[in-house]
Simulated assay, not measured.
Amino acid sequence: MRRTHGGMISFEHDGVHHLLMIGGAGSKPAVQLPHYKYIQLSNERWRTNEHSMYNLSSRKWNNPSIIGQCISPASAFIIEKINNTRAVLFGGTETDDDAKNTVTNNIYILEISVSTVFWQCIKKPEAIDQWPVGRYYHAGAIIITGSDCPMLVISGGADKNNDTLDDCWIFNITQHSWIKLDVPHSASKRHGHSLSVFLMSPHCVWIITVGGCVDKRGTLVTNPNIVMITELGQCISHTHQ
């Protein structure tokens, strides 16, 4: 299925590199594969949770089996690789079997092989307040420190009312807990942007955000906010406690 606003990660298996594409929205699928779901939207586009895997050596596509709590047809989420067999996915717009759209704040942990993707869904517990609101068109990246405690950092995005969000969070993938970061508004208030992290030391991380829009009208970020660098210190230490 031809589609946009899905997610893609790369991984290696037995010396062969693969690309895994998940979800997205696009034109009506020529073939609806039995493992996946395809929902028609009100704008005549279709949203899917289809998985497509590309072998870079053989240059052939295949469609892996899915096990567990797989995401519904979704788009505009983020997916980041934790290591060569695991990935984390957050947020996006999901469409259920009744064609109802929901901007979510669910976390999914994926275990990946060349033939199978196992899904685990982590939803916000009712007793927990420290959890980001649902969003789409946000940005994210993985922070890996020497303590073997991977973390997902996210920023911005748009909420269910299409308003641009102004926040930045870190998710401890081991403890399944969020911490909200105190960063400049010019770095976090944007959607449709890019985000990268650079580990300077186990307790010093630079987050770099580039581009994006600042409001629902699609006003582009302008100088001096094209690139913002934020140095993290105490928050990284706190997530390890």
Rank of each mutant, 00 (worst) to 15 (best):
H203F: 10
G134C: 12
I144L: 11
H176Y: 11
P64E: 06
N83Y: 06
P64W: 07
P34G: 14
H13V: 09
N225Q: 05
V133G: 13
I144C: 07
S65M: 13
T104C: 14
F171D: 04
K189V: 00
K28N: 12
D182T: 15
Q120M: 09
D14A: 11
K123V: 12
R59T: 10
T104M: 07
W131S: 03
G23Q: 02
N105Y: 09
I128T: 10
Q234R: 12
W169H: 08
S65D: 14
E50V: 11
M1N: 11
G15P: 12
K160Q: 07
G24L: 02
C121D: 02
L152A: 08
Y136E: 14
H203L: 11
A87M: 06
Q130Y: 00
I179A: 13
K124L: 00
T174L: 11
Q40N: 01
S177Y: 08
T4G: 10
N55A: 00
R2I: 13
I128A: 02
H35D: 15
S75R: 03
T104P: 13
G146H: 07
S75K: 03
L199N: 05
Y36F: 13
S115F: 02
I112V: 14
I154T: 15
I226K: 00
H13N: 09
K124M: 01
Y38I: 01
R3P: 09
C235H: 07
W46T: 13
A99R: 15
G146L: 05
A74K: 04
S10F: 13
I112A: 01
K124V: 03
H18K: 06
I79K: 09
F77R: 00
V227T: 05
A74L: 02
G6I: 03
I128Q: 01
A87L: 08
S115E: 06
C204E: 14
R217S: 14
K216I: 00
N55T: 06
D148I: 10
N223E: 09
G68V: 12
P184A: 06
A127Y: 08
V183T: 15
G211W: 01
Y38H: 03
I173M: 10
I143Y: 01
D182I: 15
S147K: 14
R47H: 05
V227S: 03
E12F: 02
A76C: 11
D129T: 06
I39F: 02
L41W: 04
T116I: 10
S147I: 08
I143L: 11
A30H: 10
R86Q: 15
H51I: 14
I107P: 06
N62R: 12
S52M: 15
K123I: 05
K28Q: 11
I79N: 01
A141W: 00
I179L: 12
G211A: 09
